[in-house]
């Protein structure tokens, strides 16, 4: 039973790069363009890990994080937040909301894969 990872980022190319790397390593991937889209797509899915950009239109990463932490189905799901080094304040906010794993953009596909593997084995 392959592990399923959701990648939420408004950049199609980032989603594509991440998706290619993860699928190659044996994960299933669901893509969403922002927090709102993610909430719709996540319904009823078993998700083992969520990768979520902080800065997005239509529900940013932190709001999304706060929302799913309320949902008994996903409150224990590990989340990797994507951020840039300049967003220290966001990071504090995200940490308080329960996001402990952060990956700084830009990253290389193999860095993302390593981060994912530390949290969920394929």
């Amino acid at each position: 039973m392959a592990r399923t990872i959701m990648i939420i980022d408004d950049s199609a190319s980032i989603r594509m790069v991440v998706s290619i790397a993860l699928k190659k390593a044996g994960y299933e991937v669901i893509e969403a363009v922002d927090g709102k889209d993610a909430l719709e797509k996540i319904k009823g899915q078993k998700i083992n890990l969520i990768i979520c950009d902080v800065n997005m239109p239509n529900m940013d990463g932190i709001s999304f994080l706060k929302t799913i932490k309320q949902d008994p189905n996903y409150k224990f799901t590990p989340v990797i937040m994507l951020t840039t080094e300049s967003q220290e304040a966001k990071k504090q906010e995200g940490r308080a909301a329960g996001a402990k794993a952060w990956v700084v953009k830009p990253f290389k596909p193999e860095q993302m894969l390593a981060a994912v593997e530390k949290l969920v084995l394929p």
């Binding site: 408004d10 950049s11 199609a12 980032i14 800065n55 997005m56 840039t84 953009k105 830009p106 290389k108």
Partner: peptide, 15 residues
Amino acid sequence: FRAAHTIKGSAGVVG
């Protein structure tokens, strides 16, 4: 800002 941010982020990841 977000648009510029997205371009930068994607460019970095795509290389």
